[in-house]
Simulated scan of single mutants.
Amino acid sequence: MNDIAPPQSAADLRRAEVIACAAQLLVEGGLGEITFRNLARRMDCSTTVISHHFRNKDEVVLETYRHVNARAAAMRDAALSNRAHTAVRAIEELLPISTAQRDNWAAWLHFWSAALHDPVLAAEHAVGLYQTVERVAAYLRSIGMEGDAAQGAAQAISNALYGIAIQALFDREHWDEARLRQEFRRTTAYALGPDMAARQV
């Protein structure tokens, strides 16, 4: 079986460039910044170039949401694959500590507010939440936690992750890295129990 991905076409590369630009505009100023005009200005091209690859703004927004989710999933999987950390430390790397993680969380927050009124984005949001819980649960099972216990702990940990991260986006001075790690470690350690929390993975 050939696992080598086929080369991307020029159109695929251009679409990816537009989406990457849209993701940056989103972080800088919110969903309102994602317009064909702003994208063309940032990319130094005409709006015709953008409209050649995307039917409308809604399509750009949806693809940008999927791009942000995929980027975050890759970071999540990398953190949970680090076998040099304890279970708690591996999971806490999902917090908005690095610039890249803060950008992802900021992008999500913009999308989540829009998802309240957009069924398509709401469906993407639900999938993202589900996948995060399931990935953490799979990780916990991989280090020896039983099935039901792993599922319950994963849900509790995900709840804490989202709650703490959103607070940190709004008050970065209060929620510095030390506080982020401290509060999340306390919640995660409680959900895992002392033996599992200290386990080296």
Rank of each mutant, 00 (worst) to 15 (best):
E124W: 03
Q200G: 15
Y190R: 10
W112F: 14
R14H: 06
E63G: 11
S9N: 04
R181Y: 03
T187V: 11
A10V: 09
W108N: 11
A73T: 07
A73Y: 12
D12P: 03
G29V: 03
F170S: 09
L180C: 15
L95E: 02
G193F: 05
Y130H: 11
A115N: 00
A20T: 06
R14C: 06
D12Q: 06
A107Y: 09
R181A: 10
I166F: 07
E17G: 08
D77R: 07
T47A: 03
D103N: 15
N2M: 10
A123V: 13
L192W: 03
A126Y: 06
R172C: 10
G32R: 10
T99N: 15
G30D: 02
A20C: 06
A20Q: 10
Q151L: 08
V127D: 03
Y130I: 10
A115R: 01
A72Y: 08
P6M: 02
A74C: 07
L180F: 11
D44I: 00
S51E: 04
I34H: 00
A168I: 04
R71D: 14
E92N: 11
N38G: 00
V68W: 01
H110Y: 07
H85R: 15
A149G: 13
D12K: 03
H117F: 14
T35K: 00
M196Y: 12
A23G: 14
S81L: 01
L26K: 13
E17L: 03
R179S: 08
I143L: 14
H110A: 11
Q167C: 11
R186W: 11
I157H: 01
A74W: 03
A197T: 02
Q151W: 08
A40M: 01
A191D: 04
W105E: 09
L161A: 12
D171V: 04
A107Q: 07
R83G: 06
A154P: 12
T64G: 09
R102I: 13
Y190E: 13
R199Y: 13
A122K: 15
D176H: 12
I143H: 08
D118I: 08
H110G: 04
A165Q: 04
D171K: 01
A16V: 12
D195H: 10
R185G: 12
Y65I: 05
D12A: 05
G147A: 14
T188L: 05
S142F: 09
T132D: 02
A70I: 02
A178W: 01
I164D: 04
H117M: 14
E146Y: 15
L62V: 12
D118Y: 09
A70Q: 05
R37N: 01
E177H: 15
A156Q: 14
T86Y: 08
V61P: 12
R66E: 07
A22Q: 04
H174F: 03
P119N: 09
Q131N: 08
T35H: 00
E17T: 10
T86S: 13
T99G: 14
N82I: 04
E17F: 05
